[in-house]
Deep mutational scan, measured.
Amino acid sequence: EFTQISGYVNAFGSQRGSVLTVKVENDEGWTLVEEDFDRADYGSDPEFVAEVSSYLKRNGGIKDLTKVL
């Protein structure tokens, strides 16, 4: 089950073990991109978060400006 990723309007994530599946949706709710990120592939949590965040930004993730990150 996908849940909204904090700080984004149209990005959602689903966690299974160490694998986080993220997706970005358009205004109609269609999935634009979907990608798996395995936490085990990264040396640290900040590196993992930075990679996921960068992916979302590159692929149309819209920041939720009503929330302070």
Rank of each mutant, 00 (worst) to 15 (best):
E34Y: 10
T21L: 04
T66H: 11
G61D: 01
R58E: 08
V68Y: 11
P46G: 14
I5N: 04
E34C: 15
E25A: 12
S44E: 03
T3P: 06
L32M: 12
F37G: 01
G60M: 05
N26Q: 04
T31I: 12
L20K: 01
S18R: 06
N59E: 04
T31D: 02
L65S: 10
D36I: 11
D45L: 12
S54V: 07
L32G: 04
Q4C: 15
G17M: 04
D45R: 06
V52D: 02
V33W: 14
E34V: 13
R39N: 02
F37W: 01
D27C: 15
Y42V: 01
K63P: 12
G61L: 09
R16P: 01
Y8I: 05
V52H: 01
D41P: 02
I5S: 04
E1W: 11
E1F: 12
G43M: 11
T3A: 09
G60D: 02
S44I: 02
T31C: 10
Y55G: 02
G29P: 03
D27Y: 10
F37C: 02
T31P: 07
G17V: 04
V22E: 00
S6T: 10
R16K: 10
L69D: 14
K23E: 01
L56W: 00
V49A: 11
G17W: 04
N10S: 03
L56D: 00
F48W: 07
G17Q: 02
K67L: 14
Q4Y: 08
R16M: 05
T21V: 08
F2P: 06
Y42R: 01
A50F: 09
S14R: 15
L69M: 10
D38A: 02
E1T: 12
V24C: 05
E51K: 09
S14E: 04
W30F: 13
D64H: 07
L20G: 01
W30Y: 14
E25Y: 15
L32D: 03
S44D: 06
W30D: 13
D36K: 14
R16G: 02
S54K: 13
K63W: 12
R39D: 02
V49T: 09
G43Q: 10
V68F: 11
K57I: 10
F2L: 05
E25K: 15
D45A: 07
E35V: 13
R58P: 02
V24L: 07
L20E: 00
E47M: 06
V24G: 00
D41M: 10
G43V: 08
N26D: 10
V19H: 02
A50D: 09
S53E: 15
V33N: 08
V52N: 02
T66S: 11
A11L: 02
L20W: 08
